[in-house]
């Protein structure tokens, strides 16, 4: 298959999820034959662009007009559809980041392509084209067949490993033929927490629930997270009573995450919460109630009071990091 991959950058550096997407595409191209073209949109330095070759990009299309200096779903989807037509692509792969979610459906509609979002498997191509995705916010999986000749997949971050497959890609500067009137949205301000790992991309996540007893105790969660290089999250009750921002709420009505390690501290493990985290590779539950449902979903558990246990765990984590 001829594959187009959206290589998303943030401030000129490609995101980890972009390398995952290229590795994913590269595996499909190896199995089915065909070329992987990475599409970079916005300002990225040439030495950064060539990084895409490390993971299997055969070619790079570079869209860097001023119109792409701000992210907009309209302009970015036009560039991707332009690239897909240019390369005669039959598969478009986009990581399911917040920007990816905005772009992918617009690309699918432009190309009249069948789209599957939140994909967690390589496609099965022996009989048609099928992929696996999470449904019911992680409570189960579905296998979905795409019937159209052109297909769009948005793949779940942290679901695929980054694998090297070095190529020496050509870099072609492209013009999507956009004018200012094609874009009807305008970015006013972008605020990102500096030095913090975004929850959706984190490999390690430390999460707190009402067992933390109050927002004043969250420094323990943050210290453990900082020590291990993890992102912080919380349960729904905690965000509902405004101990923590909604953006940290993981669960069925919050964010669904798939980290390598999820440590749930003082969270009982209601079915809605488990839905959002059950695909984590390793789950640790810390709760004073031995009957807490989380222990049934966890790989490791400690029964005890969060505020008493956390300092011990932090000490051990610090010793481990300093060792």
């Amino acid at each position: 298959m001829n594959i187009i991959v959206f290589a998303e950058n943030q401030d000129g550096a490609f995101k980890k999820s972009s390398f995952e997407a290229i590795s994913y595409a590269s595996q499909i191209a190896s199995a089915t034959g065909g070329q992987v073209t990475a599409v970079s949109i916005g300002q990225v330095a040439t030495d950064k662009l060539t990084e895409l070759g490390t993971y299997g990009a055969d070619a790079i299309l570079n869209y860097q007009d001023a119109i792409f200096n701000q992210f907009t779903g309209e302009a970015y989807s036009k560039a991707l559809a332009h690239a897909a037509k240019n390369k005669g692509a039959d598969l478009i792969i986009i990581s399911n980041t917040y920007s990816g979610k905005m772009v992918a459906p617009r690309v699918a509609a432009k190309l009249n392509a069948g789209m599957v979002s939140g994909v967690i498997s390589l496609p099965e191509t022996s009989n048609g084209f099928k992929v696996k995705r999470m449904v019911f916010s992680g409570k189960s999986f579905a296998e979905v067949a795409i019937n159209t000749s052109v297909k769009v997949l948005s793949i779940t971050p942290n679901s695929f490993t980054i694998a090297e497959n070095p190529k020496s890609p050509s870099i072609e500067t492209m013009d999507a033929g956009l004018s200012a009137s094609d874009v009807k949205t305008e970015t006013i301000e972008v605020a990102r927490a500096t030095g913090k790992i975004p929850l959706t991309e984190a490999e390690l996540v430390i999460s707190g629930g009402r067992g933390m007893k109050g927002p004043e105790n969250w420094h323990l969660i943050e210290t453990l997270a900082d020590t291990l290089g993890a992102a912080t999250a919380c349960s729904k009750p905690v965000s509902d009573i405004h101990w923590r921002p909604h953006s940290e709420h993981v669960g069925q009505t919050g964010i669904t995450i798939k980290p390598n390690l999820y440590i749930a501290i003082g969270i009982s493990g209601a079915i809605q919460h488990l839905a959002g985290v059950s695909s984590s590779k390793v789950i640790v539950a810390i709760n004073k109630d031995p009957e807490a449902p989380f222990f049934k979903a966890a790989d490791y558990g400690i029964i005890g009071d969060a505020l008493e246990l956390l300092p011990k765990i932090i000490d051990a984590a610090k010793a481990f990091k300093n060792a």
């Binding site: 409570k139 189960s140 979905v144 795409i146 019937n147």
Partner: peptide
């Protein structure tokens, strides 16, 4: 429809939780 859900699958049950 461009896509069709062909089957569903429930997550594999977790093994026993190791208590510390």
């Amino acid at each position: 429809a461009n896509t069709q859900t062909t089957s569903f699958e429930l997550p594999a049950p977790k093994g026993a939780c190791k208590l510390i």
